[in-house]
């Protein structure tokens, strides 16, 4: 697929972000990072561990929302992953009388 590198620069960035958000999410929600926030204190009336988990969760949702559009686009355009369908013939290649 020689044209892959020419068309996928925006798609590649979206994909890199998709990987980054996943790795960051895992790192933030798992020990040892999560243990840092295991503090017996309150912010805005909420215990810090509860607040921390829900804030990270919300941020992940926001991040996923922001990259879902570019990813969808890159998939529609992507040469290998295109939804255009390699299985269907081009219209001009259709047999006569089809």
């Amino acid at each position: 697929m020689p044209d892959q590198d020419m068309t996928q620069t925006p798609g590649r960035r979206a994909r890199d972000r998709a990987m980054a958000i996943l790795l960051v999410g895992i790192a933030l929600l798992m020990p040892p990072v999560a243990q840092v926030f295991l503090v017996d204190d309150h912010i805005l009336g909420l215990p810090i561990p509860v607040l921390y988990i829900f804030v990270v969760w919300g941020a992940l949702i926001l991040g996923a929302m922001m990259i879902s559009g570019p990813l969808k686009k890159s998939e529609a355009r992507g040469p290998g992953a295109g939804a255009g369908g390699n299985g269907a013939p081009d219209p001009q290649e259709r047999p006569p009388g089809d």
Partner: peptide, 12 residues
């Protein structure tokens, strides 16, 4: 959280 991570990383 597990399903959240799987869906956020849906691309992979």
């Amino acid at each position: 959280l597990g399903p959240t991570l799987v869906f956020v990383g849906w691309w992979w």
